[in-house]
Write a protein that binds this DNA or RNA. Sequence first.
RNA 1: GCGGACGUGGCGGAAUUGGCAGACGCGCCGGAUUUAGGAUCCGGUGUCUUACGACGUAUGGGUUCAAGCCCCUUCGUCCGCACCA
Length: 848
Amino acid sequence: MTTGNFFAIGEQKAFVAFSHGRFDKMEKYTPQEIEKKWQKVWEDEAVYKTERDDSRKKYYALEMFPYPSGNLHMGHVRNYSIGDVVARFKTMQGYNVLHPMGFDAFGMPAENAAIEHGIHPAKWTKDNIANMTAQQKGMGLSYDWDREAITCNPDYYKWTQWLFELVYKKGLAYKKAATVNWCDKCGTVLANEQVVDGKCWRCDSPVVKKDLAQWFFKITDYADRLLKDLSLLKGWPERVKTMQENWIGKSAGLEFSMEIPELGESVAVYTTRPDTAFGITFLALAAEHPLVEKICAKSDKADEIKAFCEKVRQTSDIERTAGDADKEGVFTGLYCINPFNGNKAQIWVTNYVLAEYGTGAVMGVPSGDQRDWLFAKKYGIDIILTLQPKGAKLKLADMTAAYVEKDGELVNSGRFTGMEMHAAMDAIMDEAEAKGFGKRRINYRLRDWLISRQRYWGAPIPIIYCDKCGEVLVPEEELPVKLPEDVKFESGAKSPLATSKEFVECRCPKCGGAARRETDTMDTFICSSWYYLRYTDPKNDSAPFAKGDVNYWAPVDQYIGGIEHAILHLLYSRFVTKVLKDEGLVDFAEPFTNLLTQGMVIKDGAKMSKSKGNVVSPEEIIGKFGADTARLFILFAAPVERDLEWSDEGVEGSFRFLSRVWRILDIKADAINSGNDAYDAATLTADEKKLRGQLHRTIKKVTVDIGERFMFNTAISSCMELVNHLYTFQDKELNPDLARETAKNLLLMLAPFAPHITEELWSKFFVGSVHKQSWPKCDEAATVENEIEIVVQVNGKVRDKLVIAADADKTAQEEAALALPKIKELTAGKTVVKVIVVPKKLVNIAVK
RNA sequence: GCGGACGUGGCGGAAUUGGCAGACGCGCCGGAUUUAGGAUCCGGUGUCUUACGACGUAUGGGUUCAAGCCCCUUCGUCCGCACCA
């Protein structure tokens, strides 16, 4: 028998001659041997190699590439199993499918390994990638490995640096001194998106504030488009879109200025409730507001103010954002003027106004804002009522909270008194604009993306500092700026790159004078914000990708990954795609047309983790049962979007099912082999027709379940039902033609789930690779049943059943139901009020 | 506090459009086979009831000939947002 290719027909016959007969003569299902064999064949024969073909319809299936931690975990197995089903199914449906894999290979753990064990990050990463790739290959995934992208390779990060330069040239990258999020444990800064509940997203340790000069990407310039285009993403979960919407946090309001006579200056405030402006009794400043210093120069309370600000600055984000954090402040002794009515308002420095949002100064309206209410009550600040429900009278003395409804009528508001709230809002903004002290303004919660990292294992920022020329981009032809080898891996406020003399010292590209390189590296989220584009043209060394390739393959038709990236990676990728679109480098504005967020794999009700000791290793499971069983179980045990409870018994069940498939095809091997591919189904017995009917109903269901509903669990369960049905023929004659038809279609349907066993069985009976076949078609005629069972209800309760010709009309169905002895008995002596007939389903008789 | 998702046997889950609730799998019980065990094959398995039958999809109500599905109420679980002015 030849290896490295599929069996020829003669050889199949030889196999069958050997295998027919009773159980004890059978060849056992040994996944370990079969899987290795076919993985080698697929690789040798380049079965999953993909090429662009403009005459064919493409489909791009993608799973989020992993960080090379060293080992696959069950979450990866689930992710890749889902993606592989999609890719194989679409291939069988005739699409030209792109299904690539790679590694998000820059990042902290590699560097920590260097610090702790003295292994170079590059070596650590390379070894881990080798190990994980072997595990991925052991799963039998249909990747085109020739397209692999590894972000830490110079031929990849060259283009990450190129992307930085593009963003820079568009004026969307800038360096500025700012108060930034700092994670002590990681020894680096973090973008806002990477701080979760005041803690580092990666290591969970508290984030502190630090003043540093850092590089930013102006993602805020794209805030509105990132928000608006969410509506284009029909194939995204609503949940993810809502999260992005919240994150962007658009609000519309008025920015206006208030004079501070004692300083001869004015202060800008932003509000979404200009309708309440006549109720201003104080001004609340953030402790970090620039005006605070000037106030201190004038105020006799300078010491008290300074002490308060210091205290606020010391407070961590976790404490500051705690829901019940106390509102505190100090009165500065100074006043500002409400431009709407000329009233004086006390200026307070507070702990509840955010410096980063709006203008860092807020008008205090105790009657219309709960926070201001609490603050005013605490410090005895005046309260003026300006809004009340229509037709009702509010009395300040009776109120226990601010009136915050966006509904009602204005009071105590000068010429606006009596106006409906929304009309007043517009009128007040009109007045502010007309008089020139205010302007309508849109505000976003989204901040610019902080992209510098004080770490070694990342793509160096391609910037050179020259004393004469200032900040200069490294010329494109000199990219990549490679990572130096002679560094000291120590965590601290400075990047390890700063310890490499060879790296830091350079010539200015403009004037040729002595200059220094930027020593920060880029956030790894930049590397992963464009990798899906690189797959379309992974070996290109003159551009990140060719336009023809990227526009043929991308955008990604189906993206699959965890919900944890709902904001981070998915927001950054959308931003980068839009920048590239504006630059004319890609033709699409959104990178991922459809998004599937898979659920977690849990055990004993909790996420698998080393500390809980509930980790199940994929390697172990695959070693014991084979990859097909592991894949099948993980797809069968729960719908893809829901969390999946791991069950060792369930895995055995999946193995049992595959063994049953193996066995029944072996039992029927003679029939399958002697059957014809084309035959007249009319000659089948009644039992056989039933089997054939189920076969084609199964094809129909599986096609819909995989292709339209992503219900892989029910697709598999209907295949199980079909196999159960086939077993009713195990000791009975089965028409060879039908046996062949059933085996063929069953293998085709199972091929995306269990690629190895189906390939092995296919090779015993059919020619070529099962993975190169077309997806089966349902013969509608076969699914039609001659007789159907009808449910007969009396007053909505099932009382009997009725078998009737499938083409019986409504009247015949009703008559047959009423003629049933049991129904006659139940309706005797009662009045039939109504008879509802649902054709081919049920008859319901309402009686009194 | 606000927004969203979810709640079905002992367990994972199914029911796609308002039409037999519990498909399929696990577990459990029984039978066949076997020297035995295991494996395998077959059958059973929501609850109560001797049976007839009654009850049953978190809770209480409503719409309907008919509700797991639609409407309202309450409870619970999970997720997101939360001093964003």
